[in-house]
Amino acid sequence: MKRILSALALILLSASLAAAAPLDSFNGQKGTLDIAGGTAHIPVMKKAAQAIMTANHDIRITVAGGGSGVGVQKVGEGLVQIGNTGRALKQGEIDRYGLVSFPFAIDGVAIVVNPANGVQAMSKAQLKDVFAGKVKNWKELGGKDAPISLYVREDGSGTRETFEERALDKGTSAGGANVVNSNGAMKTAVAQDENAIGYVGIGHLDNSICGVTVDGMVPSQENAANGSYTITRLLYMNTKGEPSGLTRLFVDYIYSPDGKEFISSSGYIPVDKK
């Protein structure tokens, strides 16, 4: 009997321990939280919002896009509580609105080709020519005589934004390139097509595709985290002044193990709170 009771107690204890997850801080909270801005942030924000709203029905969280500019403007004017940006705030923005930034993830993009492709390293200049449609044959890059199949992501994709900003130095891709709508679809396309070149979030690299070394930088999670691979950017949450209440809890939740899980599953690398 005693043994059964202690077993029961143990079960109860472990259950309560399991429940003492990061979500507990939202207990008893109510109200609404509006989030807008960078599109790359949306999957992370949405997963977090869903988890919170499922655990606590008195909290309503809305997540909208619009881009980094919209994020700054909306949070600065008090229209939303959290404005997301895919870039560091400019000094002018900080001064005008009194914004506080919370970098929470590294978004790295790897340029990828089919594993059968002989060209596995190129310079940034070559990369720009390829994506501008100026270089059309792998022969010109020292590969075999075959046309280059360009694959890009859809407009508004965070991966595309990072790629164009950091790898093409704010250039754009050729209009005739094939457009796919997810990292998974990009992987399938590049794995299927020997002449393909495309790009994926660095967390999605695997054996079916081959990461291209750009200017000597090897794409990998570690290199992105330690800064030796530079086709990356930080993703920020911004608040007007130091956050409080629900906003504070949400920001902390993004830095919690749950939040890190959402960040990794969205293809980004979590960053610890400073």
């Binding site: 807008a36 599109t39 949306i42 997540v63 909208a64 896009g65 619009g66 881009g67 919209v70 859809e154 407009d155 508004g156 994709s157 965070g158 457009v179 709508n181 997810s182």
Partner: peptide
């Protein structure tokens, strides 16, 4: 394609 990323913009 557009709805997967955009919300409330001109696009």
């Amino acid at each position: 394609l557009v709805t997967s990323n955009e919300a409330g913009s001109a696009a």
